[in-house]
Design a protein around this nucleic acid. Structure first.
Length: 227
DNA sequence: GCGACAG
DNA sequence: ATCTTGTCGC
């Protein structure tokens, strides 16, 4: 599942593409079931050498054991623009996913889904392009606001758009007393289910195991790719 | 107009 | 994202 041939190269094209895809997001659906496979994806860059490396790691939902790993190396095709991150990261991510021998039942992304200025963060974008179920788990609140969730693991508070007041995601406490992560729906899953999946994937550390594994793998692959 | 701004 | 030392704590 490589990226479409007419992948946007300018901000204007990217904005038009987001407007088209946002209508296709399905913000409802089940969480993980017994025996399903979850993929974590992440990207690392070397701006100097114009190199990007993506990693996709497949884990068993119940044991969180690694089932399969894949990486993809490419050229940086889009600058970092807040709100347009998908256009920078997805080409390599989709190549890495295509290299997996099994199809994930859910993909956990490092970033947002519906919690996005135009409701199409990279997780939702990836979901619509691939048809896969996706969730976004970000490390910072971007432009949204939230109240501090309770100190215990599992506590959460709405992540809201200050303009519209709508709940676009949730600040979720995965570790007691540690800064929350920011969960939002990607595609074909509901918000409650997204939060439950995030907690199940992060039994020990702040970030989901999927994200930790993918982050570690793409860094190692980048180091190996450059001299 | 200016600053902030997922990774 | 990436550049970077030491340090506090389980």
């Amino acid at each position: 599942m490589p990226v479409p041939a007419d992948w946007p190269t300018t901000e204007a094209e990217a904005l038009a593409e987001q407007q088209r895809l946002r209508e296709l997001v399905e913000p409802y659906g089940p969480g993980l079931a017994e025996g399903e496979l979850v993929a974590g994806v992440d990207v690392a860059y070397d701006d100097e050498r114009d190199v990007v490396v993506a990693a996709a790691v497949l884990l068993d939902q119940a044991s969180l054991e690694v089932v399969e790993e894949a990486t993809a190396v490419g050229r940086i095709s889009f600058p970092y623009v807040p709100g347009l991150l998908a256009f920078r990261e997805l080409p390599a991510v989709m190549d890495a996913l295509a290299s997996l021998h099994q199809t994930p039942d859910l993909v956990v992304c490092d970033g947002y889904g519906l919690a996005h200025p135009r409701r199409l963060g990279l997780a939702s974008h990836l979901g619509v392009l691939t048809g896969l179920r996706t969730v976004g788990v970000a490390k910072t609140p971007f432009t949204f606001t939230y109240e501090q969730p309770g100190p215990e693991r599992g506590a959460w508070a709405p992540l809201s758009d200050a303009e519209t007041g709508e709940e676009v995601g949730r600040a979720v406490r995965t570790r007691p007393g540690v800064k929350p992560v920011f969960v939002s729906v990607g595609h074909r899953i509901g918000l409650d289910e997204s939060v439950a999946v995030t907690l199940a994937l992060a039994p020990t550390y702040r970030l989901p195991e999927t994200t930790r594994r993918a982050d570690s793998l793409c860094r190692r692959a980048l180091a190996a790719a450059i001299g």
